[in-house]
Amino acid sequence: MGDPGKTDVVAEDGLADLPLQQLPLDGWHRARGARMVGFAGYEMPIQYEGIMAEHLWTRAHAGLFDVSHMGQLSFTGEGVDAALEAMIPAAIATLEAGRQRYSLLLDEQGGILDDLMVARRPDDIYMVVNGATKYDDIAWMLDQLPDEVTINLMDEQALLALQGPEAEGALARIVPGVERLFFMQAAAFAWNGHALWISRTGYTGEDGFEISLPAQVAAAFADALCAMDEVKPIGLGARDSLRLEAGLPLYGHDLTPETGVVGAGLAFAIPKSRREQGGYVGHDRVARELAEGARLRRVGLAIEGRLPAREGAPVFAGAEQVGTVTSGGFAPSLNAPIAMGWIDAAHAAIGTPLEIEVRGKRIAAHVAPMPFVPHRYHRQKN
Rank of each mutant, 00 (worst) to 15 (best):
E96S: 11
V80Q: 04
T133G: 07
D223W: 02
Y42S: 00
I174V: 08
L196S: 02
G351E: 08
Y251D: 08
F372K: 05
L255H: 06
Y280P: 01
L301T: 06
P165N: 12
V178R: 03
T201W: 03
A40E: 00
G278I: 10
I174Y: 01
E292S: 13
I151W: 04
G351S: 09
G5M: 12
T352G: 09
F209W: 07
A264N: 05
I338T: 09
D114L: 03
G263S: 09
W57K: 05
A195P: 08
T324V: 15
H55R: 09
A158G: 05
R285A: 06
F182S: 15
A294C: 12
W28K: 08
R359S: 11
A167I: 00
W342S: 01
Y280R: 07
R35C: 14
T259N: 08
G71R: 04
A224N: 05
S327W: 00
L171I: 08
V129Q: 03
H55D: 03
V10F: 07
G164I: 03
Q185P: 06
T201A: 10
S273A: 15
P146N: 11
L153N: 09
L20M: 05
A86Q: 10
P122Q: 00
D107C: 04
S327H: 02
E179G: 12
A348M: 10
G33H: 11
L159W: 11
P371S: 05
S199L: 11
A167T: 06
W197F: 07
H29T: 03
D229V: 10
A365H: 03
V231T: 00
G263A: 10
N192M: 14
L296S: 08
L354V: 11
I303V: 13
G111M: 01
K381V: 15
G328A: 05
V149P: 01
E355K: 11
S103N: 11
R298D: 02
M117F: 15
R120M: 07
I303C: 05
Q144Y: 03
V149E: 01
